[in-house]
Design a protein around this nucleic acid. Sequence first.
DNA 1: CTCTCTTTCAACCTTGAAGTTGAAAGTAGG
DNA 2: CCTACTTTCAACTTCAAGGTTGAAAGAGAG
Lengths: 131, 131
Amino acid sequence: MTTDDLSRVFAALADPTRRDMVARLSEGDATVSRLAEPYRMTLQAVYKHLRVLEDAGLVSRPPGPQPRPVHLEARAFDLMDTWIERHRRRAEERYRRLDAVLAQMEEDEHGQDQGDRHRGRPEGAGHRDDP
Amino acid sequence: MTTDDLSRVFAALADPTRRDMVARLSEGDATVSRLAEPYRMTLQAVYKHLRVLEDAGLVSRPPGPQPRPVHLEARAFDLMDTWIERHRRRAEERYRRLDAVLAQMEEDEHGQDQGDRHRGRPEGAGHRDDP
DNA sequence: CTCTCTTTCAACCTTGAAGTTGAAAGTAGG
DNA sequence: CCTACTTTCAACTTCAAGGTTGAAAGAGAG
């Protein structure tokens, strides 16, 4: 089911430790050992967290000489941002247009599936994250 | 460890099904059975997902008569939004001010822990999500 | 009252996430 | 070369997340 990009980003940020790492990296790149300092955790665990952030595209580590610094990829925020904004906007717009709400209520009460609002949904397979 | 609010919201949206539910709810409230239609999943599973969304504050279900509709709480997006924007901004600002980067590099090379940047972290307990 | 639909509770299974330990490669620098 | 630090690989534990089944309450409609 190759978890999609969005899922990876959200999941990555669902962990407080990882969020803290991102927060600190937003103030500047850092070596892993330096990054790991605050946490009561094995170094390997920190590397694991970094892998998750890396797989989500939130962080990069340029190849090369040994102490390779961790770098925040701020562009990775865009994915979430656009998703969130899209739906926030949809919801707010709907909230403003009262008529739409009323139409919805009528449709629901009459049970007539004549309304073309929620028709032809894919029924099971593909979701509709980013149409 | 009472997972904090942010973690709950991010975790809630880390699941494709749940994200799809939110996407559809952004177009209008819906009854649970209607919401459940597209998914190849037990009704109980859908209720579980709704519980997660509800606990995250992303969704509400007014008490009252039986088919209680599910409603998107668009305000719940604000939490994530401010978090994301805060760090995105920090990162971008840092990127613009080259001098800061240079100062950082010097500090790192000299190894002087005189910099008050990362000092006195709570060592494992409280993180610094929303100072 | 009874039948049906909605909603919830509980026990269970399976899988992945987060941590740990232990050990092995790389890559310096002395 | 040897020593130390960084990075990764692998096996193993613990526990919660997503699903399932089965059954029990609540609430409306006949």
